[in-house]
Amino acid sequence: MEKPSLSFKIILLGLITGMINGLFGAGGGTILVPGMFFLLGVSQHKAHATAIAIILPLTLVSAFIYVKHGIIAWDVTLKVILGGVVGSYIGARLFARISDNLLRKAFGVFMIIAAIRMVF
């Protein structure tokens, strides 16, 4: 049986990520980072940084639809954005100082904790 082409894998990864992002309001990092690392062979740091660049347009599309349907809590949104901008700056600065191995393990632990919290 023939292996799927790289272009097919990339498009499928994007399709799945977009659907998860639109449905759950999340999924960019949790789908993209492992997908790029394991399926496409992208280094850990590049997978995380690339995921952030990919998530922006996906989030804009989803947010537009959520705004259109009037389902955004603006009082919460604006306050979280304020803290999120500062946190993003700090996280991005720390990102460059962490090894691929530590980054992969920390991300894995974060995903496990998040999954457990969502189930229970």
Score class of each variant (00 low, 15 high):
residue 53 A to D: 06
residue 68 K to I: 10
residue 31 I to S: 05
residue 56 L to M: 13
residue 21 N to T: 10
residue 47 A to N: 01
residue 91 G to C: 05
residue 87 G to S: 08
residue 21 N to P: 06
residue 37 F to H: 11
residue 69 H to Y: 15
residue 103 L to Y: 04
residue 73 A to C: 10
residue 19 M to L: 15
residue 58 L to P: 00
residue 69 H to P: 09
residue 80 V to L: 12
residue 89 Y to V: 10
residue 46 K to A: 10
residue 25 G to K: 03
residue 23 L to T: 15
residue 108 G to K: 10
residue 95 F to K: 01
residue 79 K to H: 14
residue 108 G to C: 08
residue 101 N to A: 15
residue 67 V to F: 15
residue 49 A to L: 12
residue 63 A to E: 11
residue 36 M to V: 01
residue 72 I to V: 15
residue 89 Y to A: 11
residue 52 I to T: 05
residue 40 L to I: 04
residue 58 L to M: 15
residue 94 L to N: 12
residue 63 A to Y: 14
residue 90 I to L: 13
residue 28 G to M: 03
residue 15 L to F: 08
residue 24 F to V: 14
residue 27 G to I: 03
residue 95 F to L: 10
residue 10 I to W: 05
residue 93 R to Q: 15
residue 22 G to P: 07
residue 22 G to D: 11
residue 32 L to I: 03
residue 85 V to L: 14
residue 52 I to D: 00
residue 58 L to V: 06
residue 45 H to P: 02
residue 30 T to R: 03
residue 96 A to H: 14
residue 17 T to M: 07
residue 58 L to R: 00
residue 103 L to N: 01
residue 26 A to V: 10
residue 25 G to W: 07
residue 106 A to H: 10
residue 57 P to H: 05
residue 96 A to N: 14
residue 65 I to T: 13
residue 26 A to E: 14
residue 88 S to T: 12
residue 104 R to T: 05
residue 13 L to K: 00
residue 54 I to H: 02
residue 72 I to C: 04
residue 105 K to V: 13
residue 81 I to M: 13
residue 105 K to S: 10
residue 107 F to Y: 12
residue 55 I to P: 00
residue 38 F to C: 05
residue 33 V to D: 00
residue 16 I to R: 01
residue 32 L to P: 00
residue 61 V to L: 11
residue 96 A to E: 14
residue 48 H to S: 07
residue 97 R to A: 15
residue 46 K to V: 09
residue 12 L to G: 04
residue 71 I to P: 03
